[in-house]
Amino acid sequence: MNVAKPILELVAITKQFGSFVALKGVDIEIAPGSVTCIVGPSGSGKSTLLRTINGLEEIDGGAVFFKGEMIGQTVRGQHRVPVSSKQARLQKLNFGMVFQTFNLFPNRTVMENVTLAPITVRGHSRKSARAAALQLLERVGLEHKKDRYPNELSGGQQQRVAIARALAMEPEILLFDEPTSALDPELVGEVLAVIKSLAEQGSTMLIVTHEMAFAQDVADEVVMMADGEVIERGSPKQVVHNSSHQRAREFFSSVVAS
């Protein structure tokens, strides 16, 4: 891994749901162009962590820094206040999010799903947005589905459209929240192939996943979480095969069966 200044830094992130502590002070730095896979048992806080980055979950303590700038809050003297909602929306544009359940807009065609935000948020012309969207749909192999509605597509195709929709806003970092967990087994491969091709083109990505073989294949770094904490991090080889942590060894012996 290179030693460039991190593009994203999570510092001492804490998050509570009622009395349940979901994140207990998480620190992670992400180098530009790197692929980080976050793994761990369910309930370990990995999805919550990903969602705090683009503000889908409000954090209770700590902070997220993007290129050295604090995201979501601003310092006023001895305390912080949340940024204005407009500023928060602008900050979100640095991140593209791909959800476990795709969350395509069911009332809009594939093309409209991809172009809605570029037109209404970035102010692109309809024509240029459609041209760019067509290129992205080609990249995920779905240009022939552009006039279909999401419910006419398979799960794998919907997720690939969702990736195109995220890419259309030209985010600096892509966040994947278990992108293949809701898919039938035979559809997982096509989605992972798209993600891998993005990784090879140098996109900065954070991927929460259960696909250990995939993580070992594409990740520059694997972060292992358990009970709201990072318990292990390093190269895939290091973390998956030579973990020093008892909890991590248990986890990997159960998921890396083959």
Binding site: L56, S85, M97, N103, N107, L116, A166
Partner: peptide, 20 residues
């Protein structure tokens, strides 16, 4: 998830409600 997707791509509240 629809609200979250709107927020994730940065749609304004007005666009969120009128288009999605």
């Amino acid at each position: 998830g629809q609200f979250e997707a709107c927020r994730a791509v940065g749609l304004s509240p007005l666009t969120t409600y009128t288009r999605v």
